[in-house]
Amino acid sequence: MFWIIATVVLFIVALTFLLFRIEDLSHLDKETYSVRATSPSAENQNVLERLKEMRRAGIGLRGKARLMALRKHLDSLSDGLELTSEFRRCDNPRGEWVIAPGCDTRRRILYIHGGAWAAGSSRSHRAITNRLSHIANAAVFAVDYRLMPEHRFMDGVRDCREAYTWLVDNGPEGAGEASFILVAGDSAGGSHTLGLLAWIRDSGLRQANGAVAFSPSTDLTLSAPSNRNNISTDPMLGPVFGGLSKIPKPVIWWATLAAFRISPTSPVASPLLGNLADLPPILIQASTSEMLLDNARRYAAKANAAGSQVELHTWSDMVHVWQIFTPVLPEAEEAFADVEAFIKKIEAVNRESEMTHT
C-alpha cells in the first residue's frame, strides 16, 4: 500500500512540474523604478472606509450570493458622481460607449474593467472611463466581457478580442476607421489588456497606438515576491486573497487550471510569461503597497529587455486601482494627469514618425 501511495505522489509531482514549467524570473526583481514618495492625502482615509463597506456587503453570505453582493457594490462605486460624459449602451459587442462632450469619436479607447474576472462591469468603472474620455479627447468603449464562473475564462478573452477588432472600424456613430486607438484596463482587465496586445501582434492586425494598465495582474502563478510580502499592506486584495499564501503553489496552480480551464503558465492568462517584443508603448501604474506591485515591475523589466517601451510609474501606499476613486482622491487625479502626458507623448512620437516617412 505504501508503494502505491508513493508512486501516485511521485506521479503527481512529476506531472505538476511537466504541466507547470515555471520560469525563474527573480532576476527581474533587481530593476528599480522611481516612486512618488509622498504621503497619502487625507482623502485616502475615505477610500479605506469605502473598502470596509465593500467587505461588509458580503458578511454572512457565501458562494453565489456573496459574489452577487460584490458585483452590486462595485456597480454602485460611481453613484453620486457628476459624470459629464454620455453613456450609450451597445449590445453587439456588449458594452457601453462613454463620450465626453465634443470629443473626437475617431479617437477610441477600449477599456477592460477589473474584478478578478468574476465581477465588475462597464457601470462599475464609469469614474475611470469618463475621465479617460475627457483627457484623451476620445470615445471610450467599456466592454462587458463574459465573467466567471457563469462563463469560461476564455469566453471573456474572446469578447475582448472581438471588441478590439470591431472598435478599429466602428465608432459610436457607426462604421468608420479609428484615427487613434488605445487599450486600457485595470487589475484583471489590465491582464486582459496586456494579453490582447500580444494577440494583436501575433494576429497581424492593426496594433493599438498605446496601452495603459492600472495595477495589472500579469502572472497567475503567484511567483512574484509582493504577492505574499504585501498582503498586510494591501487593504483591497489582502483580505480576499491573503489566505492563498498558506497554500502550496502547486495546489494553487492545479486549482487555477480547474477553475480557469487554462494553465496559469499560459501567456493568455499570464502575459508576463509570453513574448513581450514588438509591443506598442505601454504605461503601467502601480502602488508600492499592493500585492501586484512585482507583477507590474517584472512585466516592465522583461518587456523593456525585449525592446518594447514600457513605463512603470509607482505611487506610495495607494490602494489597488486607486484611479477608480477619481475625482475625490487627489492621487487619482495625479494618475490621470500622468496618463494624459503619456498619451501626448506617444502622439508626438507618431507625428514625428509620420513626418519622417513623408
Rank of each mutant, 00 (worst) to 15 (best):
A69Y: 02
G60K: 08
R66S: 11
N46Y: 10
K72R: 15
R55D: 14
E53L: 12
L77A: 13
K52A: 14
L77K: 13
S76P: 03
R66W: 03
L61P: 06
M68S: 15
P40N: 05
L48K: 14
V47F: 09
S41E: 09
K52Q: 14
G58C: 08
E43R: 07
A65R: 03
H73A: 12
L67I: 07
L51D: 01
M54D: 04
A42Y: 06
R50W: 01
A57H: 13
R62P: 04
A42F: 08
G60Q: 06
A42W: 02
S76L: 05
E49F: 13
M68G: 02
S39A: 11
R62M: 01
A57C: 03
T38K: 00
A69T: 02
N44M: 09
L70I: 15
L51A: 00
Q45D: 07
V47I: 15
G60L: 01
D75H: 13
D75P: 13
N44Q: 13
G63F: 03
R71K: 14
E49H: 09
R56W: 09
G63Y: 00
Q45V: 09
R66E: 02
Q45H: 06
D75G: 11
L51W: 00
S41A: 13
L74N: 10
L51S: 05
I59K: 01
S76G: 14
Q45Y: 04
R50Y: 01
E43A: 15
H73C: 11
S41K: 08
R71L: 10
M54K: 06
G63A: 06
Q45T: 12
R66P: 05
L51F: 12
P40Y: 00
G58H: 00
S41H: 06
N46I: 04
L70R: 05
G60M: 04
N46W: 08
K52G: 10
H73D: 13
I59F: 01
R50Q: 07
K72Q: 15
A42E: 15
L48T: 01
G63L: 04
L51R: 09
A65H: 01
R62G: 09
G63N: 00
L77P: 02
S41L: 13
M68R: 10
L77F: 14
L74I: 07
L74S: 10
E43H: 10
P40L: 01
E53W: 04
L70E: 13
L61E: 14
R66C: 07
L74C: 05
R55M: 14
R66N: 06
E53A: 11
G63W: 02
K72M: 03
L48Y: 11
G58T: 03
E49W: 06
E53G: 10
R50K: 13
K52F: 05
N46G: 07
L61I: 10
A42S: 15
A57F: 05
R50P: 04
A69S: 10
T38L: 05
K52I: 12
T38F: 00
R66I: 01
L51H: 03
I59S: 08
M54S: 05
K64A: 03
E49P: 01
D75A: 09
T38M: 03
K52S: 05
R55I: 14
A65I: 01
L61N: 07
P40D: 02
A42K: 10
A65S: 01
H73W: 11
E53F: 14
L74Y: 10
L77W: 14
R50I: 00
R55G: 09
I59P: 05
L67C: 11
T38Y: 04
N44G: 13
